[in-house]
Simulated assay, not measured.
Amino acid sequence: MREAATVDVGRTKDVDAEVDDVTEELVGESAGDEAATWDAWDAAFDREEGPFDVAEVDLDADEVKRLDLGTLVITPFDKMNLQLQVDKAKEKVQALLISDGTSAMEVAVFAGPTRSSMLGEIREEIIKATEEADGKVELVQGPFGAELRRRLPVTTPDGKPATHLSRTWLCQGPGWVLRGVVMGKAALEPDNQDADLAMWEFFTNLVVRRGPEPAVPGSVLLMEIPQLDEK
């Protein structure tokens, strides 16, 4: 008759604890490697072709028709649809939404540090928020550095479950951070350059006027309601 095997429970717990420690260490190293890769993608993008800081361009040097929102100067494109998200109490613009009919992008400007980058911190916040909403996020090398592709569960107006897809572009300049959230066809077909061409060109042509006012890094830089006859 075969003898029953005996198990040292204390030893098993010790081994399990050691395995957990090694697993946590490997996960931490993996996360650190990923963050380093994302930082490298950001560093490879130099803003030479935009988006720009107002000190880097001469807005009066050409005949291009632009809209001046104070903190942000935008260049409209043919048949562009523009919506402003306005803080009614302050009568200021918090963000803007542009569309070409098939794709759309929400743009906002935030205060940032002048001598360091906070893109890693912003990415971590987006990743955490996505996970807390039971969504999924993938980071790839996009046109402006590390790009976040998000899939979030949502409910349609008629109560049916659905998935919302978006791509987040982040770009940091002297004292500011631009965020563009791409939706629609350009998010559904992220490798279709024709689908996101208008969004890419619009984001590239943005000009940020940070201003001298102090602001906490990460806080929204409010914009003015534009005058339609502005150059």
Rank of each mutant, 00 (worst) to 15 (best):
L72Q: 13
V73H: 11
T75W: 09
D78F: 09
M80D: 11
V86N: 06
D87Q: 06
D87Y: 12
D87G: 06
K88F: 05
K90H: 09
E91I: 03
V93T: 13
V93N: 12
Q94G: 14
Q94C: 08
L97A: 09
I98A: 13
D100Y: 12
S103G: 14
M105Q: 10
M105T: 13
A108M: 05
A108K: 07
V109M: 06
A111H: 04
S116L: 02
S117Y: 02
M118L: 09
L119P: 03
E121G: 10
E121N: 07
I122H: 00
E125I: 01
K128C: 00
K128L: 08
A129T: 06
T130L: 01
T130G: 01
E131I: 01
D134T: 01
G135D: 11
E138G: 03
P143T: 11
F144Q: 05
F144T: 02
G145P: 00
L148T: 07
R149K: 13
R151T: 10
L152C: 00
P153T: 00
P153D: 01
T156D: 03
P157E: 01
P157N: 00
G159E: 05
A162F: 04
T163K: 01
T163E: 08
H164T: 02
C171N: 15
G175P: 11
W176H: 11
V177S: 02
L178K: 06
L178T: 06
L178F: 11
L178Q: 06
R179E: 13
R179Q: 15
G180W: 03
V181Q: 08
V182K: 02
V182C: 08
M183W: 03
K185R: 15
K185M: 12
A187W: 08
E189A: 14
E189K: 13
D191S: 14
Q193L: 14
D194R: 13
D194E: 15
D196L: 10
L197G: 01
M199E: 11
E201F: 03
N205C: 06
L206M: 15
V207D: 11
